[in-house]
């Protein structure tokens, strides 16, 4: 993975995540830079999905801080939603809402 970068679009600092007290993710620093393609490799249970979920702001880390274009991301009543709406994530197993095709397609456009 690419490390450090002052122009990082997304940066994780001292991020850890625990499930039921067990540490599943521990990253001191990770910078994602604009225009680059990254791959995350690791065995089962190494925290790949957790890392992607945290990077996609689907859940806050247990500890640590995320920065978007240099600014810290606030989860409660902050910038999270605005930033998240500029991201996209395709789940391993996609889900269709129990509604019309239009409803599914337009979902992300709703406020």
């Amino acid at each position: 993975m690419s490390e450090i970068g002052h122009t990082a679009q997304l940066e994780l600092r001292n991020v850890t995540h625990r499930y039921d007290g067990k540490v599943v993710l521990d990253i001191s620093r990770l910078s994602i830079e604009r225009g680059k393609i990254y791959g995350v490799l690791g065995p089962n249970g190494s925290g790949k999905t957790t890392l992607l979920s945290i990077m996609n702001l689907l859940m806050p880390p247990t500890s640590g801080q995320l920065f978007f274009e240099g600014g810290p991301i606030q989860y409660e009543g902050g910038s999270r939603l605005e930033i998240q709406r500029s991201m996209a994530m395709t789940l391993q197993s996609p889900y269709l809402f129990n509604t019309t095709v239009e409803g599914n397609i337009a979902y992300g456009l709703r406020d």
Binding site: L57, R85, G108
Partner: peptide, 9 residues
Amino acid sequence: LTAKSLGAG
């Protein structure tokens, strides 16, 4: 997860 990933509050 899908709702959140699509920017749902």
